[in-house]
Design a protein around this nucleic acid. Structure first.
Lengths: 161, 161
DNA sequence: ATTATTGCAAATATTTTGCAATAAC
DNA sequence: GTTATTGCAAAATATTTGCAATAAT
């Protein structure tokens, strides 16, 4: 089902990605490793920065192709992998079988509410939980690197409808 | 790579699954839907109740086959799906590409610490977060059904090693 | 010139299903 | 007897890669 991705729009407080900083980080990553700047990568990266969606590779490839139809799926795939490796993108799996990608949030971590009925993804921030996580990690001798906190249920529309 | 599943043992406080209750729930589920009790299902379900692991289908099938080699992968797969449908098993994806299953925890929710180096899965309970989750859900008009809270990092051994 | 990148098609990996044979009810 | 279940093999999904052609440095 490569062509039929449900459009998972984001709702919630408008987030300000520090796009400039992320672009610099990507540039540094590429420079350090001798990775080359190509037309394809520029289009893919620009598209990824433009969309405010938890996009799948398929969805991103679709958008990329609307800008340049000659760019192949594999190139989109490999470029996204590069984005993840550089820390610019985060991989998310919400359990519907589609791996999604979003811009890394440099300022604050955010987590997700996922509607079980319509698949809508809403972001939230709850900094008060962070120290609790730290405490849990310590209690288990664990060095905490990252986390996922996902709340599943019914969104406002789906409760009513 | 169907045969090569890293053995992700559980560490942490010994959990007491209310196995009796879960078995009754499964029985009720099966009765209600006219599902039949077969030798294969009995072996698979017993095996699943016996192991205290976040097992993949492959791992479960392996253990099942050590009890009865004639039971096919598809039957294990479909039986696990039945367990999930009845609420007796929970599906977990920790991002290593292997979907895992564990007994549902009727008494208390538990969440997971996952070591990024060795894959070790440790469970934890932190009831104090529950009201925070409720508050987040309410704030977004969301009816909360379930959640995932996963902490990724390095376990004690891997920090030292 | 050298080496990374691209795009295709093919390989992997995993999950899911069609169907004839079998077994539970 | 009727209908669910099994087990195989095959289909469906999703992800990843080999390689010859191409492009960036």
């Amino acid at each position: 089902m490569k062509g039929s991705v449900a459009g998972a729009k984001i709702t919630g407080p408008p987030r300000v990605h520090d796009v400039q900083r992320l672009r610099r980080r990507l540039d540094a990553h590429m420079r350090q490793r001798g990775l080359r700047s190509t037309d394809q990568r520029r289009v893919i990266v620009d598209t990824f920065f433009d969309i405010d969606e938890h996009a799948t590779i398929d969805r991103l490839a679709e958008l990329v192709r609307s800008r340049d139809p000659r760019i192949g799926y594999a190139t989109v795939y490999r470029t996204v992998r590069m984005l993840v490796a550089s820390g610019v993108a985060k991989e998310r799996r919400f359990g519907d079988g589609h791996t999604r990608y979003e811009l890394a949030d440099e300022q604050a971590h955010h987590d997700h509410l996922i509607c079980l009925a319509c698949g809508r993804i809403t972001v939230f921030e709850e900094p008060s939980i962070e120290p609790v996580r730290q405490r849990i990690a310590e209690r288990h001798g664990f060095e905490l690197h990252e986390h996922k906190h996902e709340l599943y249920g019914l969104c406002e529309q789906c409760r009513k409808g």
